[in-house]
Structures are given as C-alpha cells and as structure tokens.
Design a protein around this nucleic acid. Structure first.
Lengths: 347, 347
DNA sequence: TTTAGCACTCCATTCTCCGGAGTGCTAAAA
DNA sequence: TTTTAGCACTCCGGAGAATGGAGTGCTAAA
C-alpha cells in the first residue's frame, strides 16, 4: 500500500487535531477540515493508515489517535517549522537578559522561562564539562587557623572557600605553596590531582602538606561537581494541567521521576535538536511522554542541553520552534562574552 | 458544657484514627478502640464534641472528622510527644553527615531528607541573614583585563568571581584598592556600600574607580542574595500520593504554589517549633493544609527554618518529633564547627 | 448515666439504559 | 477505479435508579 499525499495530509490533520483537543479524531471532523471529500472517503483512508501503523484506535468506533510512528512521520515530514512571532522572540530574549554571573543560575533561569513559555516541564543541563580542570590557584591567609582558597576553573568560573587548618602555617610559606599548586595541579583532572598529591608528599614539610591536601580535596570536589552534568528540572507541576495526567497515579509516577532522578533524565543528543516520541525514550517512566531537546554551545568545546517533557501529543512544531530559539539565544549569550583566548598552558 | 476527660480521650482517638485512615470515623470504631463503653455512649459524646466545634460532620450520617479547632486541641494537649527510635535518630544523623561545605547545599540536602522521611513535601530556608555584610575583600589580578574579586562574608562564607575590566589597571595599584575596600566597605549593608561608593568617587583615579564600583556592585549583589530568605521546596510530588489530593485541580494548585511562590511560603516563627493548622495559615493556597515548622540556629544570630507541608490530618506527633530532631541536628551541625570568635570590627 | 434497639439518612457503588459518535461495509454514482 | 451515500453495528460515557452499608439520633429501659 502506498502512502499517498492525501494520506499524509490526513495524518497531518489527525495529529494536529489531536494535539489540540486530546480527543480521538473522527472522519467527519477531518472531512470538514479538509473539504472536498466526504467522510466516507476519509474513513477508507483512515482504515489504510491504521493498517500501516500510523494511527491507532483506542477501541472500535472511537476516532483515530496518532501512533508513535505517526508522530514520527509528522515531525519528520509533515510538521511546518513554525516561525516565532516578534513578540515571542522578544519574550525569549528578555528571559535571557539575566546577568551572566553564574552559569548555573542563568541555566536554571532559562529552564524556568522555557517551562513557563511552553507550559510543559523543562529540564536544563550544562553537560560535557567532563574535562574540567583548575587553571589557577590562590591562597589568602585569614588568620592563624584559616585561609581562603580561590580556584579559577577552565571555563573562567571562580570558586572559593574558607579552609580551617589544623596546624598553623606560616603566612610566608604561602607563596611557595601557591607556586606548587599552580605548577603541579593545574590543567589536570581531579583524579590526576590526587595522584600528583601523592607524588609530592615527601617534598614539602608536613604542616604544609596538610594544607596542600585540604586544598586539593576541595579542588577535586568542586571540579567533580562542575564536571557532572547537573540537571535542573522545573515546572513539573505543569503536567498536572494536562488531561492525560489527571490520573493521580500516573502523574505521581512521572513527577517523582522528574524531580528525583535528575541523573537519568537527560536525553543524549547529537544534532542541534532531537525529538523523542513515546517509546523512543529509554527511560521506563517516559514511555508515554515525548521529549524535545535542543543543545547550545557554551564556550568552545562544551555543550548544554535544554529540553521539554510533555505528552506524546505535544505540539511539536511550537515547542521545537521555541526551544531552538532558546538554544540559539543561549549560544549567543555564552558566545557573546568574548572570552579572551585561553591559553590552557601547563606552564 | 464541660470538656470531660472522656471527651478528650474520644477526640484523641478520632484525630488519630482519621490521621491514619483519611476516612471519617464512626462511633462503633471508637467504642471498639476504647473499650468499656458502648457505641451509643460514644455517640452522645460525639454529638457534644460536634456542638462544641471540635468535630465536624461531612454530612448527616457520616463519621466525624476533626475540625481545625479539634486538631489544635489535639496538638496542644492530647498529642503524645513521640520519641524517635534509635534507627530513626540514626537516619537523621546520617542525613546530616553531609559535608559542611556550602551552607545552602547542606540546607537543601536536609530538606530533601526531611521530605523523604516524612513523606510530605518539605521546605527549608536560611532566613534572618538580613544584615549580612562583607568582612573582607581581596583582589587577584589575572591579566590586564581581568581580576578575581574574593569576598568573605559575615558568616565566613566566601564568594568570588572573575571581573572583566574595561580599563587597564596597574597591578601595583591593587593593594591600595584592597585597602580602600577593607576599610570603607566592610561591615556595612549593601545599601550603605553604594552610598559610600559615591563618597569616595573623587578620591581615587577614574580607572580605579571603575574597578571599585564593579567590585561593589558584585558585592552588593551577593550580599543581597545571601540576605534574602532563600527557600527551597522539595518533594512536592509527595502530595500526590495522598487521597486528599487525588483531585488533580487541587493538587495542581498547591503544587504550583509550592514550586513557584518560594517567597510567600515560609511561615514565620518565634518558638522552637510551630504548628499551623488549616485556616491558621495566612496563604490562600494553604487553607486546606497544615504546616509544621521548626527553627534551628546558624552561628550566633542567624536562624533557619525547616518545615513540612501536609494535609490537615497529618500525623502531627510523628512530624513534630522528626522535625525537631532535624532542627537540633542542624543546630548542632552549625554550632559544632567552633567558629573562632568573630570580631566584626569596622577597623 | 449508660445501654440496647430501631428508624432514618445519606453516601458510594453498581447496574442499567440510552444517545451519540464513529466505524465498516455495501451498493450505487461518477 | 474511485468516490459517495446509506445503513447497521459497536462502543463509550453519562444519567438515573437501585442497593447496601455505615452512621446517626432518639427513645425507653437498665
């Protein structure tokens, strides 16, 4: 059997109607919307489409509902890439007007905005920061028992913390220590840091070594945290508005998945944008939902993810358009800052 | 009419039964549980209690349900302060074993643990940090166009960030600037900082002033953020498990209140623990829920809040016990650290 | 003051009964 | 060969109606 143009046209109408109403759509409605043919003709075509696996019937004599395969065809071929209205572009840009300050904050901000705009839950991750390293250390003595360690990371973010010292350290020895840190512990992974720490254990006096290892422990912690994909999920309660989640059990299941399993949620991605429909998701809990995810660039070789979770009948066109708007915005935002060329030297 | 001991006893049984089952409780069940008297007697007493306003009837010939007034009497007089089992104390302590590191992180961690333990949503705030001030500044030149500003706050937390400079600043001038910062901008509020910034505008060369104001802007931002009560809400999805929130509309309303209005949620508090029942809450959205909130001490003059939101029939005894366990734990945790005496001097 | 008994009330559940919407099929029309 | 009209059939969902259980209030006796 052939997938004629008319069949595709009908499929398109079914998908879009179903997205709008969340009700199975019947032949009469389709005929009315398309015009030119009668509902009987449509019925024949529907029958074919069902047989081909693009549509499903909840039961005999209900209307038709798109199957995952149907949605797939829709997003691949039928969907019109929506253009954003000026007002919406404006809104997106405004959301991004947040100060650059803290990467994480901007990102979670973006998630919040996306969720509000889409009326679906959103999640955001800054991933691919796996090879985060320290670029520079600094130690500021505070008093006999404490000093501040300041670390600048590969992406120019700065982290610092007060360190309590068990043993007094002569402030005059600080510069030596800082030199040691900067020459031996920059540009390497957290693991490598710990390894090198072992290596220098007998080259420095013991009380300095104590401070040194405290510093390294802190640095390793921070790098590890920064290197992880941190995933924020926001607006999970949006789901409760949708008819498909009026069933409290279902809603609860998905909700706790979204809020707990921050780890397993993100959907990997290669192209600039990916749409995962129902069973195309790996996660058990997402079988009945679709995920649209876009990526954006952070600096040179890092990439972040921003995604939206919704019911399979989500309005793919609209979501995709807005999401890519956001992703572009974020890329621009993080690129615009004109970082000075980084020499990630190991001096 | 008198509130006899037996009436109180009956009220207690009603409350505890209703907490357990979420179903109106009838005279027979009470008689069975108490023993000694027949259900008819109980009925007479119930009738009195209803008239006195401690109980309510959803409709004629349903069992009785405690009214807010009834809950109030229960938590004030009838409730047995529960002791925690060893296992549970253990669990709480374990949850608190988080590294002290970041105040915020520990706090949100605690919230997560509370929510999991109680099976109700929890919120946590570190409030009362209103008068946060900077205690010390440090500037670390990075290159011609950037330097790192490090600020230590009144509570020993340290914040830092990379600053881009429009104009070159001679690294040799840095110490002067740092001195200026430490002598004029420590120990004062963000507002006062900005005021003083105006005051020194003609005492320093312009390119330094630029850097100075950037630094102050950053400092003011951080202090403002730190001074705000930041409220985390976790485990909101726990609510969906409860029968009273099977109605998706109600659930959605409360959920979005919990996740959005982080500001209006916190319930003020004077004593070590407070219980707010139903209409005792000010917030519209919490009219049908109860809130148990405990406070803990952070350092000398700061206090945090940790609370649990649940249905009015929540198990006050259990929640109160666990919550005060947590609050004590947190107080111990933040106290234990043996901060060296802070001289918050304005030198 | 407590108890037993009884009539009454009201809700929740189940069952049944339509009406409506939609399908599939067939036969006629284009 | 394709489209259309017509018709019988299916199934869902909502509206009542029936049923049973749980609980109450009242009365009269212990």
């Amino acid at each position: 059997m052939e997938l004629t143009d008319r069949k595709k046209q009908i499929l398109k109408v079914v998908v879009e109607d179903y997205i709008r109403t969340a009700e199975p759509v019947g032949s009469k409605a389709i005929a009315a919307e398309m015009g030119g043919v009668s509902s009987a003709t449509i019925r024949n075509e529907l029958s074919d489409l069902t047989e081909l696996g693009y549509l499903e019937q909840p039961h005999t004599s209900a209307g038709r509902v798109p199957s995952p395969k149907g949605y797939r065809l829709y997003v691949n071929e039928l969907m019109e890439r929506q253009r954003l209205s000026v007002a919406e572009t404006e809104k997106i840009n405004q959301s991004l007007q947040t100060k650059m300050e803290e990467l994480d904050q901007v990102i979670s901000q973006a998630g919040r905005a996306v969720s509000a705009l889409m009326r679906y839950p959103a999640y955001v991750a800054a991933s691919g920061r796996g090879k985060m390293t320290a670029r520079r250390f600094e130690l500021l003595p505070v008093d006999d028992h404490s000093c501040i360690v300041v670390m600048m990371m590969g992406d120019d973010r700065v982290r610092s913390q007060l360190l309590r010292m068990q043993l007094k350290v002569d402030p005059e020895q600080m510069p030596t220590l800082v030199n040691l840190l900067n020459s031996n512990f920059t540009g390497v992974s957290a693991d490598e840091m710990n390894r090198r720490l072992m290596g220098v254990s007998d080259q420095v006096p013991p009380q300095m070594f104590l401070l040194l290892s405290q510093t390294i422990a802190y640095a390793a912690d921070v790098l590890e945290e920064a290197g992880q994909k941190e995933v924020f999920t926001v607006g999970a309660s949006q789901l409760l508005k949708l008819p498909e989640f009026r069933d409290a059990d279902k809603a609860h299941q998905l909700m706790s998945f979204l809020s707990d399993s921050k780890e397993s949620l993100p959907v990997p991605d290669e192209g600039p944008m990916k749409i995962l429909i129902g069973p195309e998701n790996v996660s058990e809990a997402l079988q009945d939902t679709s995920v649209v995810v876009a990526s954006y660039d952070i600096g040179d070789n890092m990439r972040g993810l921003i995604g939206v979770v919704g019911p399979t009948r989500m309005d793919y066109g609209a979501v995709a358009a807005r999401l890519s708007g956001f992703a572009e915005g974020l890329t621009r935002l993080f690129g615009k800052q004109e970082l000075p060329p980084k020499e990630d030297a190991k001096e």
